[in-house]
Computed example of a mutant assay.
Amino acid sequence: MALNFKEALQNRRTYYTISNKSLISDKEIEDIVKFAVTHVPSSFNSQSTRVVLLLGENHKKIWEITKETLRKIVPAEAFKSTEDKIDGSFAAGYGTVLYFEDQSVVKGLQDAFPAYSDNFPVWSNHTSAMHQFAIWTMLEEAGFGASLQHYNPLIDEEVVKTWNLPSTWKLVAQMPFGVPTQGPGEKSFQPIDERVKVFK
């Protein structure tokens, strides 16, 4: 049964134990991504977010790139745990969503509106965050578990080269997803009255 928005929001959690199974078709996953990119708002309607959906061998490839990049910088005695984390969690999933922000769009806005120049990179990150949240929540609604990873900028150059992406696309985050194989960890909440103030 489909979740309503509040239920999807409440159930959206970080899942590190995921499988390479899917409860929906690849076309439906693609539709989720395209729906978010079409309808999620952006400052000045900049539409600066770029998203790459990796499935099948391409999903595995991103995590091979990540491992081989980290192998060069992580001490040999510590690399096994890094490799196990990537293989046992992120690479074990069904797919990965890569989030980028097109810096040519940001630069164009800075040139067009110099009074707001310093704000556009910040607003660009806000735009990306909204896309991440929207796609993550819709993946949750479809039965997937996901997490948000940040191996950028270490893997940026290889990612752009491997998938022949524009050099102006700046990698912001990676979201591996798959059907959860166990529940998420416990989540605690700080008192809501300390986080929200209402004045009437």
Rank of each mutant, 00 (worst) to 15 (best):
F5Q: 06
E7R: 02
E7L: 02
A8Y: 03
A8V: 03
L9P: 00
Q10T: 13
N11T: 10
N11M: 12
R12A: 10
R13N: 11
R13Q: 15
R13H: 15
T14I: 12
Y16C: 01
Y16H: 14
I18N: 05
I18Y: 06
S19F: 06
N20R: 10
N20I: 00
N20E: 07
K21W: 00
K21D: 12
S25Q: 09
S25P: 09
S25Y: 07
D26G: 02
D26C: 01
K27L: 13
E28V: 01
E28G: 02
D31W: 00
I32Y: 06
V33L: 12
V33A: 11
K34G: 01
A36R: 04
A36H: 05
H39W: 14
V40I: 15
P41Q: 06
S43D: 08
F44G: 10
F44Q: 13
F44L: 12
N45Y: 08
S46Q: 13
Q47P: 04
Q47C: 04
T49E: 13
T49P: 03
R50N: 04
R50S: 03
V51A: 05
V52N: 01
L54M: 11
L55Q: 14
L55H: 07
G56F: 12
E57R: 13
E57Y: 04
E57C: 03
N58F: 02
H59P: 02
K60Q: 13
I62R: 04
W63S: 05
T66F: 03
E68V: 01
T69C: 07
L70W: 05
L70P: 06
L70H: 07
R71M: 09
K72P: 01
K72F: 00
I73D: 00
V74N: 07
V74W: 06
P75E: 08
E77K: 14
A78C: 01
A78R: 14
F79E: 03
K80D: 15
T82Q: 08
D84V: 01
K85V: 03
K85N: 09
K85E: 08
G88S: 11
S89M: 14
S89I: 02
S89F: 11
F90S: 10
G93L: 04
G95E: 10
G95M: 08
G95C: 09
T96K: 06
Q103R: 12
V105A: 10
L109F: 14
L109I: 07
D111N: 12
D111A: 14
A112D: 08
F113Q: 10
F113L: 13
S117D: 05
N119L: 13
F120K: 07
P121H: 10
V122R: 12
V122P: 01
W123V: 07
W123D: 07
S124N: 12
